[in-house]
Amino acid sequence: MSNSGILGFILVIINVIVSYKGFTNQIFFDGYKFEVDAVLKRKDYKRLVSSGFLHVNWQHLVFNMFSLYVFSDNIELVLGNGIFLLIYFISLIGGNLLSLLVHRHHGDYSAVGASGAVSGIIFAAIALQPSIGIGMFFIYIPGWLYGIVFVAVSIYGIKSQKDNIGHEAHLGGALVGMLAAIVCQPEVLRYNYIAILLITVPAIIFIYLIITKPHILLVDNLFVKNNLPYYTIDQKYNAEKKLEADTIDAILDKINRHGINSLSKREKDILNTYSKR
């Protein structure tokens, strides 16, 4: 029996065990999740790795672990177990470092998930074999096409900030994983250079723009345009923090005037969430 895929399976098991503990123990979850202030101010660098073994919910966990298991066999078989582990962990760290760069001024920004590491494995496989197929619901998607769409969606997700998905970790992990595979087998550039360039060039350009022109990070919704003032990502963050502070002040004032029993369930939930930070 071939040992290819065994490390991927072991990583799936570890992710399930650690994530389940995070589901059932909020203190454990908060102590190991990725958080900007914890990394930059408290120098808690273990979170760059530990956060990759936590997940928000079962759906998040199952999707990441299914993707990891499907693609891990290819990398282990072609590059070996040691290189597979190297790509997994440097992609995980690379994805979190890009998140840290994008949200470096947002101290309470937090995230969890193996998405950066899994993206690195997927894109390493695409670099080695762009024609590798991704089958979903009877639809076959060539790996190179999946990669182009993935990068485009990640860039839009970072710019629009319309959801809570860690697109930065996806993009950073994917780029690190692909580049690592190229370093390990540089000959793939002779045969797969078109697909590799179509994926890596826009990703690298966008990361450069994040560093040099951070105000480009926000765009209007693609389908709904409004005439509201344009805000940079820092202005939007500061506005959200002010709204949060005003909400907490209003709740505390209500407690002072009428007692804690006067709070609605929603107000109690807001206060409870704020007190855990």
Score class of each variant (00 low, 15 high):
156 Y>E: 04
138 F>A: 13
149 V>R: 00
169 A>Q: 13
79 L>S: 03
117 A>N: 09
131 S>E: 14
92 L>V: 02
93 I>N: 06
127 A>F: 08
129 Q>V: 02
80 G>T: 06
93 I>R: 07
104 R>D: 08
139 I>T: 12
164 N>D: 09
177 G>A: 03
135 G>F: 11
176 V>I: 15
134 I>D: 01
187 E>N: 14
101 L>V: 07
117 A>S: 15
122 I>V: 15
111 A>F: 10
152 A>T: 07
124 A>K: 03
177 G>F: 04
165 I>F: 04
82 G>H: 08
113 G>W: 08
112 V>S: 11
106 H>P: 00
164 N>C: 00
127 A>S: 12
144 W>T: 03
158 I>Q: 03
170 H>E: 03
146 Y>H: 08
81 N>T: 03
136 M>K: 04
116 G>F: 12
133 G>R: 07
164 N>H: 09
120 G>E: 06
181 A>I: 11
76 E>F: 12
82 G>N: 12
181 A>Q: 07
117 A>P: 05
122 I>F: 05
126 I>S: 01
89 F>M: 02
182 I>D: 15
112 V>Y: 05
86 L>D: 01
117 A>Y: 13
174 A>L: 10
164 N>Y: 07
116 G>M: 07
92 L>C: 03
158 I>G: 04
172 G>Y: 08
168 E>M: 07
156 Y>C: 01
117 A>K: 09
152 A>G: 04
99 S>F: 12
180 A>K: 02
134 I>Q: 04
115 S>H: 15
76 E>H: 14
153 V>H: 04
93 I>Y: 11
174 A>F: 06
158 I>K: 05
181 A>R: 09
112 V>D: 07
123 F>R: 05
105 H>W: 14
107 G>E: 14
162 K>E: 05
97 L>P: 04
137 F>R: 08
167 H>Q: 08
139 I>A: 03
